[in-house]
Design a binder for these strands. Sequence first.
DNA 1: GAGTGGTCTAGACCACCCG
DNA 2: GGGTGGTCTAGACCACTCG
Lengths: 242, 242
Amino acid sequence: MVELTKTAGVPVYVQIRETLRGEITQEILKPGEKLPSEHELASRFGVSRMTVRQSIAELIDEGLLYRRHGVGTFIALPHLERDHTRLTNSFDPAESKGNNTKPSLLSLEIIPAGPKVAKALYIKEDDLVIRIKILGCANNVPITVHDAHIPHKLFSHVIDKNLKVQDLWSLFEQCGYKVKRAIEHIEAREATKELAKLMKIKVGVPLLYKERTIYAKDGTPVEFTYCYNRGDIYSLTVSLER
Amino acid sequence: MVELTKTAGVPVYVQIRETLRGEITQEILKPGEKLPSEHELASRFGVSRMTVRQSIAELIDEGLLYRRHGVGTFIALPHLERDHTRLTNSFDPAESKGNNTKPSLLSLEIIPAGPKVAKALYIKEDDLVIRIKILGCANNVPITVHDAHIPHKLFSHVIDKNLKVQDLWSLFEQCGYKVKRAIEHIEAREATKELAKLMKIKVGVPLLYKERTIYAKDGTPVEFTYCYNRGDIYSLTVSLER
DNA sequence: GAGTGGTCTAGACCACCCG
DNA sequence: GGGTGGTCTAGACCACTCG
């Protein structure tokens, strides 16, 4: 039986999950190999089988493992196609192509939520939100302006410290909100005066306009962002399933 | 206590899940409302709490519900958003909202494929493709122009007969290609002179520009389409998973 | 038949949020 | 404090797959 270093406050199933994840990513458990049975893992870790299943569930969800009823649980084959149709943690997909991605902070403030933001974040109007404006560049060319809103309540205990604007995702995950999915509402719009100035383009040129809501695993909306992207440079690829 | 009609072979948690899903989609349970507590649901359905949690888990995963620790489980907001994140067989998603959707045929020709079309459809350059241009309107307002290309080889035996432009999908499916997924490449562009004329707008106004490839279940590309959509009317909602 | 995952129980204690 | 979800147990029986 493996002794888990029972870190205070960390659920057992998380510890088991991360142990397994480590063995998979370090290829101690190799792709295609069979995982020990749930029964075996349960006794090995000294927990009940349900707990083992809970540990495994998320790894299956992430595609690291797959199950075959009556056969076993296996390590999945490495993802060949990491297409850009998945939600990724670059500042923005299109920018990760260009190497010189440099997001810069335009403003950071704490304001009461307006109706649209409140609705998207499942909070009340006038509940506080942290508003972060970022200018994204690739190769020193301004390409995107993001106007992000995150619920103050969820993150109030860390905002004062070290808000790394460049990586909101790790902020979310530090606070226990595992980023799971996003819904994007997309339109084409003309550049306003303000945006034109920021992005050094003419007023009226086409922008790809997105309203994006990011959801955590438990369904909590953690971010609502207005995104403005230069239409002539920025493009977006999505995959739709029937 | 609600009696589940214990359909043979269907797990209890699936029955509960579908019961709840039904009440959500029929808006017996309204968006924003609180679901009964897990305890309550357990006794109401006469099952253990773990089973209730299993039922709820998938609905949360799908974004129909969300949880707040120490508060409750709630019905997520409007179905509008979710529904437009799937590939559907309307002439186009945004148009199915307006009732008066009237696609009209602009042109139909058989031409050799250019490099871009050929690459998208996995055929050789100069292989024949059927090119179909369609103007889409809602409430008599022109909203979209589609410039579709389908491989002549796959559909040559039916093209002469009764090509129903309005429903390419059924054409595909008649020929044994079950439509499965689409990949869309999205940009913002200015209206060209030709497009402006067709859509009765000014040259230069922002259009949502898409290049869409539709794939059948077996992976065959069956359609490649340039789509031009009025930016001020047309919008698009997509869902991204991590 | 032996081994696997799939489902389910009837509890328990904890952490969180609210008034 | 009272109610909620979060975690966990120590079993049970079933359905599936394989040899």
